[in-house]
Design a protein around this nucleic acid. Structure first.
Lengths: 340, 340
DNA sequence: TGAACGTATGAAAACGTTTGCACAATTTCA
DNA sequence: TGAAATTGTGCAAACGTTTTCATACGTTCA
């Protein structure tokens, strides 16, 4: 049986209240007494029962982490794990715990999240997706990772995806590309919509338009191989493509090779997420690191600040991204005959 | 303020005990009363406070999931996410929650796990790694995913990695390969040691030996490029390699191409983990699916059975693997002049 | 020397449940 | 018809803390 505060009190010959005070710093208690009790508690291997503490404090020191329903988890890219690590480190520094909330076939994530709130498991909720129509009428603070549609009323942490894609496109333009495609656009994901907008902006500033025929969904290499082949068979084909993820870029590179097109000689590629695999790909991918670890850290820090009252609810944090130039983008000799 | 059981009791004109009984099925209570109370509870949106329940029941319905320290998470392969999904689904079916326990720079995972136990957060612990010298003197049940060294005293869920690697090697042998290398061996990981053993067994049965010069660590393509080059420059080079992960196989394929060797024409590759990327690789990878999702499901189920007393502590579960033949292994014409 | 005050401690209530026991009401049996 | 068994309900204790309030003791000051 684990020692309780009463056991410690009995051994120390004091009351439970005194023990409680001794262990939680702050309060009115004499220094020698504090030391003595802490010593005894240590010897008895006493650890306060958190359930009991939560009950009286009405605060669990547990943050619920809500995973998206559509199992974005098995994307096969290290985005979620990295975010999770960031969250975990920031939480454990403040001795907070994380409750994993995943949906299942029977119970969607939103419902599971609600249940966790209702039954008092969590003091806060962090949503790993901006898409899940997250509950706004929550009775605990909610922080979103990503860009919610009703951003103004919310707490969220995100990259500036418009800017990131703008920079990506700009990078291509500066390298002489004027025919730019986009791989991985999925209207249901706000971040891909944002990125599309960024690309569009950069093109417009250069007096160009985003060619809708060059807009491909995530699985295009598998599901729209024919369409891809046609697009890249034309004389006026994209000389560069912005890919939503390194893995997509790698897939695309292979698909293009099937068409007799090489990266970067024939087509330049810039992608997102700076994965290991992209770094060691041949050619090494020019990519944008969105710093998922930082996304996690910041989200947790924001949550903790809200809980401690340091920050008031509608608050947004922007995590800077980094464009990493490598070998998958080539400088086009200007005066090229290919154009949009 | 959320409604408590007392509020419900007051509205229903009964005692809290009666409400409690009405909501938890089983006990002695009349059917009409039960219905009436359940109805009222629903109307009042009452949800029992789990902290209070845990306190009296001494059971939190929370399972701690311990991540490895060395952030194996950012391996970039979907192994952990898939396991997590399996765990999550199995847990939520039984209305259990998962507490994510990750180590940090300051606090190693093992310590964090101990803290979670000590402070009564969790009713059980599932370790996502067999390596972290997990606490055996735990005061809650512990289930390990992987093969712990002191397996006989433990509860664990694992593939038979010896057998899996044996089958992989056998597959190569049956295709006429007699010169077989191994990529990704790390003595600190039990599963790679197991797999090495499996390969060795298969080779021995065929009257062959595992050539130690053909044993490469995980990062070999990056860190031992020269050694690789030498090995594959020799006339008696491996005609096939067993890789610990699809990603390694892909990396190796690329590295070999740099040496002028093609997969599968010059070197056959068989790997583990059946990733998307491997499936769409050119050539499609022959790989072994270890069914990480199932690993998660089984681990959680085992935990739940132990908690309910249905299963007694030392219990092992073997999750079957699947060898998926694709295009990265080629049949060698027998009578080949290359041999070990 | 006594009043006023600060300081260290304890007693007890509270947090929201569950559950053993007692008890009343009803049914069953001889 | 009365005793015994069964059934449905309430009371109160318990789970392990924290915290408010009261109190006892030493100081300090007039």
């Amino acid at each position: 049986m684990k020692a309780t505060i009463k056991d410690v009190a009995r051994v120390a010959g004091v009351s439970p209240s005194t023990v409680s005070r001794a262990l939680h710093g702050s309060d009115r208690i004499s220094e020698p007494m504090r030391r003595r009790i802490q010593q005894i508690a240590r010897e008895m291997d006493f650890h306060p029962n958190q359930m009991a503490r939560s009950l009286v404090n009405r605060e669990t020191r547990i943050i619920g982490i809500v995973f998206p329903d559509d199992a974005g988890m098995n994307l096969g890219n290290p985005f979620y794990p990295a975010v999770l690590q960031g969250l975990g480190h920031a939480a454990s520094n403040e001795r907070y715990q994380m409750l994993l909330i995943t949906g299942s076939k029977e119970i969607p994530a939103a419902e599971a999240a609600r249940a966790a709130m209702d039954s008092g498991y969590v003091s806060g909720l962090i949503l790993l997706t901006a898409e899940d129509a997250p509950p706004l009428e929550a009775n605990v603070p909610v922080v979103v990772i990503g860009h919610p549609t009703d951003a103004d009323k919310r707490c969220y942490v995100d990259n500036n995806n418009v800017q990131a894609a703008y920079d990506a496109a700009k990078h291509l333009l500066e390298n002489g590309h004027r025919s730019i495609g986009l791989l991985g656009f999925e209207s249901k994901y706000v971040f891909t919509a944002d990125r599309r907008r960024g690309v569009q902006q950069a093109l417009q500033e250069a007096g160009l338009q985003l060619n809708h025929a060059w807009l491909f969904p995530a699985g295009a290499c598998r599901t729209q191989a024919e369409r891809l082949r046609e697009v890249f068979a034309q004389p006026q084909r994209p000389t560069a493509v912005v890919c939503m993820d390194d893995l997509m870029a790698i897939e695309l590179a292979r698909t293009l090779r099937g068409f007799g097109l090489l990266v970067p000689q024939d087509v330049s590629l810039i992608s997102f997420n700076n994965t290991e695999l992209g770094r060691y790909h041949q050619p090494a991918l020019t990519t944008i690191d969105v710093h998922p670890y930082q996304l996690g850290v910041k989200a947790m820090q924001l949550m903790l600040e809200i809980l401690s009252g340091k920050t008031a609810p509608p608050a947004a944090i922007d995590v800077p991204f980094t464009l990493i130039p490598r070998d998958s983008v080539i400088k086009l000799n200007t005066g090229s005959k290919t154009h949009a």
